[in-house]
């Protein structure tokens, strides 16, 4: 038999979810990037918003994970990538413990979805590279993109989507969808030219704030 407060918790959770969704009609985006010097390493604080779309929130509430992937790139003044960093976070509700579990390298639990949403929207101390690898006088900037999906993260643009296998009594066949493949490659090339993520202002390494 279920605990009598379980229905109440469920109701409160639904209310909170509705409130979060009402406040997050826009798509997920990165709002602030703050690079700084921490012990000779280039570190980054990141704030994002609107990560929980209705489908991802609903999936999390059902007990399955929602996944958030941050793609962070350090660019030089010409726009060339110096280094890049991928952060994948998975958030799910443990229906039996009634806890929201945020999984990165280690697992952190939260009592509410709002608290968990806040935690994966605000990342601190992301290490990009050692400052010694960068030129002190050169100008750099940081660019970040965020993608949130229901269920596990998956590269939906992976090229293997255009390979299909057909089996029958008589033959086994592997087909490559030429139109789909070349269309995808073309879209990738175009998207490389038109980055849509948030980009920080240009900064010099020697001007970075130093934090303990």
């Amino acid at each position: 038999m279920r605990h009598p407060t379980a229905h109440l918790k469920r109701f409160v959770r639904a209310l909170l979810l509705t409130a979060i969704l009402a406040a997050s009609q826009a798509s997920a985006n990165v709002d602030v990037l703050y690079p700084y010097n921490h012990g000779g390493r280039l570190c980054l604080n990141l704030w994002a918003s609107n990560l929980l779309d209705d489908r991802t929130a609903s999936t999390i509430e059902s007990g399955l994970p929602g996944t958030c992937v941050y793609h962070i790139r350090l660019l030089d003044s010409d726009g060339a990538t110096v280094t890049e960093h991928l952060i994948e976070l998975s958030l799910r509700l443990d229906l039996w413990e009634n806890l929201y579990l945020l999984q990165e390298e280690e697992q952190i639990s939260f009592n509410t979805l709002a608290a968990a949403d806040s935690a994966w929207s605000h990342r601190e101390g992301i290490v990009l590279c050692a400052l010694g690898e960068l030129a002190g006088d050169a100008e750099y900037r940081v660019e970040a993109q965020v993608v949130v999906t229901p269920l596990a993260a998956e590269d939906r643009a992976r090229l293997s989507r255009y390979v299909t296998s057909n089996s029958s009594r008589k033959r086994e066949e592997l087909s490559l969808d030429l139109g789909g493949l070349f269309g995808q490659l073309l879209r990738r090339a175009n998207s490389d030219d038109n980055h849509t993520g948030f980009t920080s202002p240009l900064f010099r390494i020697r001007n970075l704030e130093e934090r303990r």
């Binding site: 059902s62 399955l64 087909s175 490559l176 030429l178």
Partner: peptide, 24 residues
């Protein structure tokens, strides 16, 4: 608790597909 409703969205693919490949 523990029961899940799966939602599936899909579209008809009306494109022409030109394929090449190997078979056995």
């Amino acid at each position: 608790p523990g029961a899940v409703v799966l939602h599936v969205d899909a579209e008809f693919d009306r494109d022409f597909h030109f394929e090449s490949g190997l078979g056995q």
